[in-house]
Design a protein around this nucleic acid. Structure first.
Lengths: 213, 213
DNA sequence: AGCAGTGCGTTACTTGCGGTAACAGCAGTC
DNA sequence: GACTGCTGTTACCGCAAGTAACGCACTGCT
């Protein structure tokens, strides 16, 4: 059989994609604790091949996460870049994210709770190297968009980054909670969150007859 | 030796506390992946005792988490309840949280990424049962405070819950990012986040010379 | 043809952790 | 003394991550 260098490379890459798709099926079916054996079986092969391709379980999971993260980010970028007023853009972005996690909660769960990846034994301060590089990527992405589209004065860059991560966190936590106990429609949730970002908390009056006063 | 029912109970509880403290030391030293063996060794005993006291690893970790969560929530409640203007209260709360995670990043990391707890094999939609009951508790707590102190009209309760979880998520994500790469002082971060909640994003003007226009 | 090299694939193994018998000592109770 | 209930042990099971060693197919080279 004819097999030049390039065709080999593409074959290997196609194989890698097949493996990733098999892993995807298993993870979506069994959750993030799917065993390497199960994944290998689904792909019709055995463990060592997985290890040759991805190094270790963390490698496989990271590759999976990158795929899904890229897909989600593409959708978010579209909403973020649409040429409509800011409030509409914010709402569209929130809605895109929430629709995504609503449509495929298993994917969402996998991305947000990748158990543990590599973990260098540096024994120290690497807090948060776990838990969702997705969140950080989204935060940075949003920060960039804010920085380049909103006029925030001298320290605007720093501000944009704080807000980027903050808003993403807000979206995430609210979405997580909303997904658990569907307390209202998605559209309502979007409105509520946009209202929050639009300063309605600051504008609201004190409750009459508050406790203690 | 005299040993009535009550003295037994208190003895058992004291033992439990000792075990928890040992576990605490190990977890703070080795991170959330500390093995049950290591914890038992630190406590000067062997595994089965731990299992008799806490059922399984999830039980132990839950007990640990409850301790720390209670402590953190106590601090937050104090900031949340202080009789000062709303903006000051918000800033105090943010600062309390950030000071806590800054002071003890290991505790923070443990609380936020408890790997996985129980996991009933219901095979389905229990997204988010993992990842930090702390976040949810904080969200509910804040929601309650908002609902009882801020006048938000007819659907105020729903709104308060959305905001509670959203704000907590914002605080968490921003704090996590800030802890990794200390890009500014804590005070500045608090200001930035409070500004965000006060609607400065809505108030800011478009950037002159934005891309595409 | 014959031979090294290189991927793909396997079986069989090691290591380590969560979790569990099964058993031993030692209070206090009837 | 027999019974209960607690603390503690050693020794084990099951299972998943990760690895070593080997077989096989195919290519390119001489």
């Amino acid at each position: 059989m004819e097999m030049t260098q390039e065709s080999r490379r593409t074959a290997s890459e196609r194989r890698r994609r097949e493996l990733l798709e098999a892993a995807d099926r298993v993870v979506l079916r069994d959750g993030p604790e799917a065993s390497m054996n199960a994944i290998a079986a689904e792909a019709g092969i055995t463990k060592p091949i997985l290890y040759r391709h991805f190094g270790d379980k963390g490698g496989l999971y990271r590759a999976l996460a990158v795929r899904h993260t890229d897909a989600l980010l593409a959708g978010l970028r579209a909403a973020l870049d649409s040429p409509v007023p800011r409030r509409d853009r914010v709402e569209a972005t929130l809605d895109t994210y929430l629709a995504a996690i609503e449509a495929r909660p298993q994917v969402y769960r996998f991305l947000m709770h990748p158990s543990d990846e590599g973990q260098t034994p540096d024994s120290g301060f690497d807090v948060g190297r776990h838990s969702a590089p997705l969140l950080r990527r989204m935060g940075e992405e949003l920060a960039q968009v804010i920085a380049e589209r909103v006029d925030l004065g001298p320290v605007g860059d720093e501000l944009a980054r704080v807000w980027g991560h903050g808003i993403v966190g807000m979206m995430h936590a609210a979405g997580d909670w909303w997904l658990r106990e569907q307390p209202c429609s998605r559209a309502q949730l979007v409105q509520h969150l946009a209202d929050l970002l639009w300063g309605r908390l600051a504008a609201a009056g004190d409750r009459p007859g508050g406790p203690g006063f």
